[in-house]
C-alpha cells in the first residue's frame, strides 16, 4: 500500500470513527432524556396518587417534552377539561407501541368526552372501562345506568374511570333518593381512595344510611366531615328524614327549609 493510499484509508477510518462518536453521543443523549422522563413520569404518578394533580401534570408535561412519542407522560400531562388537548392524544396513542397504552389512551379520551356529556367516540365494548363509561353516559342522559357487576375474564377498569363512574352514579342515586345505591357508590369511592379529602363524606353516607348506626354515631361522622361540612350535613338530612331530628338538635340551620 502506498503512503497516499494509507493516508486515504486512515482519513476514512477517522471519519467513520467520528461518525460513530456522533451516533453514540446521540443515542446516549436520548437515553439520558428517556431516563429523566421515566423518573419524572414515576414521580408524577406518585403525585397523582397523593391528589397533587396540578404538580403531577406539570412534571408529566416536562417528561412528555423529553419523549413526545410516549403515551404514559402525555396522558398524565393531559388537561382533561380541554377537549382539543384530548383529541391530540389520539395521534400519540396511534404511535404508541404497547397495546395496553393505546387502550388506556382511548379510555382516557372516552372518559374526558363522556365527562363533558359527549359520546365516548371509541368502541370500548367488552371492557370494564366500556361498561362503566356506558353507565356514566346513561346516568348523564337521565337513563337507568343498570347495575355494575364485574364480568369474569374481563380486564379490570382503570382507577379514574371507576372513580368517575361511581361519582356520577352516586350523584344520580342521591337525586333519586336510593339510599342503598348511595351507600354502595359511597362505599366504593371510600375503598378506592380511603385517604382522599372526600373520604369523611363517604364514611358519613355509608354510615348514616344504615339503620343500625345510632344517631350519636351518625353525628360523630357528620363532625368528621371537614370539606363543606354544612352542605354535606344538609345533604344527609335531605336524603335521610329519620336522621333529621338528631341533626337538627346539633345543626338547626342544616335542616331549615327541608320538606
Amino acid at each position: 500500500m502506498t503512503s497516499g493510499q494509507r493516508s486515504l484509508v486512515g482519513m476514512s477510518m477517522l471519519a467513520a470513527g467520528l461518525l460513530l462518536v456522533l451516533a453514540a453521543a446521540g443515542i446516549a443523549w436520548s437515553g439520558v432524556q428517556r431516563w429523566l422522563a421515566v423518573s419524572e413520569t414515576r414521580d408524577a404518578l406518585e403525585m397523582l396518587r397523593r391528589d397533587r394533580v396540578a404538580d403531577a401534570r406539570k412534571l408529566a408535561a416536562k417528561a412528555s417534552a423529553r419523549v413526545p412519542d410516549e403515551v404514559a407522560p402525555a396522558l398524565l400531562a393531559l388537561d382533561t377539561a380541554d377537549l382539543d388537548a384530548v383529541e391530540r392524544i389520539e395521534a400519540i396513542a396511534a404511535r404508541g407501541t404497547s397495546r395496553a397504552d393505546r387502550e388506556t389512551a382511548h379510555a382516557a379520551m372516552a372518559l374526558a368526552r363522556v365527562a363533558k356529556g359527549k359520546a365516548a367516540g371509541f368502541d370500548l365494548e367488552g371492557s370494564a372501562d366500556g361498561r362503566l363509561l356506558a353507565a356514566m353516559a346513561a346516568a348523564n342522559a337521565g337513563r337507568d345506568p343498570g347495575r355494575l357487576k364485574p364480568v369474569d375474564g374481563e380486564a379490570p377498569p382503570h382507577l379514574n374511570v371507576l372513580r368517575a363512574a361511581h361519582t356520577v352514579l352516586l350523584r344520580r342515586a342521591w337525586q333519586a333518593g336510593k339510599v342503598s345505591e348511595v351507600r354502595a357508590h359511597a362505599g366504593a369511592l371510600l375503598l378506592l381512595r380511603p385517604r382522599a379529602p372526600e373520604a369523611p363524606l363517604m364514611h358519613l353516607l355509608v354510615g348514616a344510611g344504615s339503620a343500625l348506626l345510632p344517631d350519636a354515631e351518625a353525628i360523630k361522622l357528620c363532625e368528621a366531615v371537614k370539606q363543606e361540612q354544612e352542605a354535606a350535613i344538609r345533604a344527609v338530612a335531605a336524603l335521610l328524614p329519620q336522621r333529621r331530628a338528631a341533626i337538627a338538635a346539633r345543626w338547626p340551620k342544616a335542616v331549615e327549609g327541608l320538606p
Binding site: L48, D101, L111
Partner: peptide
Amino acid sequence: MPSAEVPPV
C-alpha cells in the same frame, strides 16, 4: 417507562 394511566377527570 411506567404503564400509561387514565388521568383524573
